[in-house]
């Protein structure tokens, strides 16, 4: 089975989930899991493929969320347009951050710290700009209906999210068999060696930022439309940043299915812990931390490495 057909089969199966899971609670768990898979995969494009570890991915998520929210609330722009602009602005901000950091040769932990700082700067800005609702945040007017990208039924949100997630996974599948993907891996593994054979590492990293920011922006749009409320802490706080990198690292960075595996395992563990500990607040964070330590110690290439040592270098031609 080729990786593409495996991917499509998995997503076809995922599409059936709302037909099987009738409990609102469990369907919500599925939505949260899928959401983690989406932001984990978005992070994976930059962190796993291009090798640039971001600690502030909430920045692009928040930009997407605020874009769709502010356009609706302040300017009355349809959220479908907000969806497009949210993704585009997420990508644009990512490119701007990348341009500023990579231009000055920031790598490794310095890049991680700068992304963290940018997310904080945006949180503080959102907190102080009245047009963006400042500290009170922004409430999107309830107007259920597909035209307003709002649904009464959770299943419809699930399918919207599934479509975004599929797009993100297809992008990564494409990376695995494209020149850009090969160049990202080369830059990740050795930037000087890549430059010596003609790879423009700066441009490659900016392209990785753009793709990663695009899908984080879309995730932000989904979040705003699903909860119809956001504030600076929700949008730009560390929660989404940590979740994105955790899911990717636990699942296996640089692998196509890793973020999905990571999301499923982390949410399963978190639900189990909640049940066992009777909803002790913060229990899931303790579990996340423990899992992360164990993964780094015993399975540094993530869960995906249990199934395959490496992505197959050559695929048999599709049928």
């Amino acid at each position: 089975m080729t990786r593409l057909s495996l991917l499509l089969v998995v997503f076809a199966a995922l599409a059936l989930v709302p037909l099987v899971v009738t409990s609102e609670f469990w369907l919500n768990v599925c939505v949260l899991t899928l959401f983690s898979a989406l932001i984990g995969q978005a992070w994976n494009i930059l962190g796993g493929y291009a090798g640039q570890f971001s600690f502030g991915h909430a920045l692009f998520f928040g930009v997407g969320a605020y874009t769709v929210a502010a356009l609706q609330v302040r300017l009355g722009v349809n959220p479908w347009i907000g969806l497009v602009l949210g993704g585009a602005l997420g990508a644009a901000v990512a490119v701007a951050v990348g341009w500023l950091t990579f231009r000055y040769g920031l790598r490794g932990s310095y890049f991680a710290l700068v992304t963290l700082a940018f997310a904080e700067v945006f949180r503080i800005l959102a907190n102080s700009i009245p047009w963006l609702g400042a500290g009170e945040g922004m409430m999107i007017k309830l107007a259920a209906g597909p035209g307003m990208l709002q649904f009464k039924n959770l299943a419809n949100y699930y399918w919207l999210l599934l479509a975004m997630t599929l797009a993100c996974f297809l992008a990564v599948w494409w990376l695995d068999r494209s020149r850009l993907g090969a160049r990202m891996l080369a830059v990740r593994d050795n930037e000087d060696a890549a430059a010596a054979i003609g790879v423009d590492a700066f441009a490659v990293k900016l392209q990785a930022m753009a793709l990663s920011g695009l899908f984080m922006g879309l995730a932000g749009v989904f979040y705003a439309q699903r909860y119809l409320y956001l504030d600076p802490g929700l949008a730009f706080g560390p929660t989404e940043s940590v979740e994105a990198l955790l899911v990717a690292i636990v699942g296996g960075i640089g692998s196509l299915f890793g973020p999905l595996l990571g999301a499923i395992v982390l949410h399963a563990l978190s639900e189990a812990a909640q049940a066992a500990l009777g909803g002790l607040p913060g229990a899931n964070m303790v579990i996340y931390g423990t899992v992360l330590v164990l993964m780094v110690l015993f399975l540094p290439r993530g869960l995906a490495s249990l199934f395959r040592q490496r992505p197959q270098p050559v695929e048999p031609p599709d049928a």
Partner: peptide, 10 residues
């Protein structure tokens, strides 16, 4: 300076 973790072909 090989790209370690990638095959010779890659």
């Amino acid at each position: 300076q090989p790209f370690a973790g990638q095959t010779v072909r890659e």
